[in-house]
Write a protein that binds this DNA or RNA. Structure first.
Lengths: 213, 213
DNA sequence: TCTCAATTTAATCATTTGATTAAACAATTT
DNA sequence: AAATTGTTTAATCAAATGATTAAATTGAGA
């Protein structure tokens, strides 16, 4: 067994990184294994040597992507010591940070699920988180319910928060075109939403916004 | 030249319909021309006979899809006789109607643009609407600005409205899984948002909501 | 009926693409 | 140094896939 520890970055890792980038950009069907090999700077056969097949490699990328989308979020939602108001601030900021680093992440996940719904019930099936996830959402819902807001299902509010945060990343080219934004202005637009989205969400819940009124 | 008028539905049209369905479901790279032919119930060669190539056919589907996404919207936004409040009601309802009929539409458009950003600046380029579109958004912004709401760029509010409306369709499988919804409950969830989204948007703008308070 | 153009089909091509194989190479162990 | 094991490469395969071709079929009009 050769030593792997000293390697600056292992071949296996280079392939994974390249696959991550290309799959998220072009999707499963749109990505050639040869392109991944090129991007990783290795021979095509190596890809199959380390990761049995394109499908296997994709599975790894997808699982990791789903984790990125949910894990940090769940830790926050699941924490019973933070208030609902704090949770809103944290979740919005966590997502904006995450999506700035991985702008293609949400569209990748969503459209792969759309293209192949059956595949996901089994092959990925929202990896090993399902139970905690449901639990987290339930907990958040209970907290929201306690915060007032009569007869509206608090799940609506969670969806609103996620929608308003994620959608501007998914629709980046549209938004830039429609509003004639350059990259700098778009960036600024996103930053403004860090404070605005929590503000709007809290208003929906009838929660007092600090420094207002 | 053979008569085409009496045909119940022309072969050309059958191919177009099939292409529409499959491209929106699986994307460009994920759709085989053979699948389109099968779906249309015709021979593969016919596809190339009527539409020179896969790319040409895709271009037609994409152009039509973009139109679906924007044309109805622009007509509403551009009408100077309807108030901002009415516009909000109409836009949200138009989108929910549209997306109920074409649930895959938004994810299709957004992810194809993501997968191939260059392609869209030229090949489709948001067909022939660009100028009016910018104009419409500008007009809506002006109306929103007049409605008050100090220093927030009204474009944020437009994005919020679109986000909250479109995202639940793009994330349908996620939402159903996360909230343990069956189809009926999901349907009901969407219907609730017909009234809720305009309510929230108007609240953001400080516009009086009918029947409240 | 015969002709002609439009339509449709079956067969085939050429390329792309995921995957494999056999051999070369490298580093560690003995 | 020889052997062993893990890594990498070049060449190749087989299937899938977009596209074409040549022939058959259809229906309208002369």
């Amino acid at each position: 067994m050769r030593e792997d520890i000293n390697n600056d970055i292992s071949t296996e890792e280079k392939i994974r990184k390249a696959a991550f980038k290309l799959f998220q950009q072009k999707g499963f069907a749109g990505t050639r294994t040869r392109d991944i090999a090129d991007e990783a700077g290795i021979n095509l056969a190596l890809l199959n040597y380390y990761y049995r097949s394109k499908e296997k490699l994709f599975g790894i990328v997808m699982e990791e992507s789903l984790k990125q989308m949910f894990v940090r979020l769940l830790i926050v939602l699941n924490n019973p010591t933070t208030s609902i108001s704090e949770k809103i601030d944290i979740v919005v900021n966590i997502y904006i940070d995450l999506l700035k680093e991985n702008p293609n992440l949400p569209l990748f996940v969503l459209s792969e699920v759309q293209a192949n719904p059956e595949k996901f019930k089994k092959q990925v099936g929202i990896p090993d988180l399902t139970i905690e996830k449901i639990f987290a959402i339930k907990q958040a819902k209970e907290q929201i319910e306690k915060a007032g807001m009569g007869n509206i299902d608090p799940f609506h509010i969670i969806i609103n928060m996620v929608s308003m945060t994620i959608f501007p990343f998914a629709a980046k080219p549209m938004i830039k075109t429609l509003n004639k934004m350059d990259d700098e202005r778009y960036e600024q637009f996103l930053e403004e939403r860090r404070k605005l989205i929590p503000f709007w969400i809290k208003s929906m819940l009838g929660i007092e916004n600090k420094g207002t009124k």
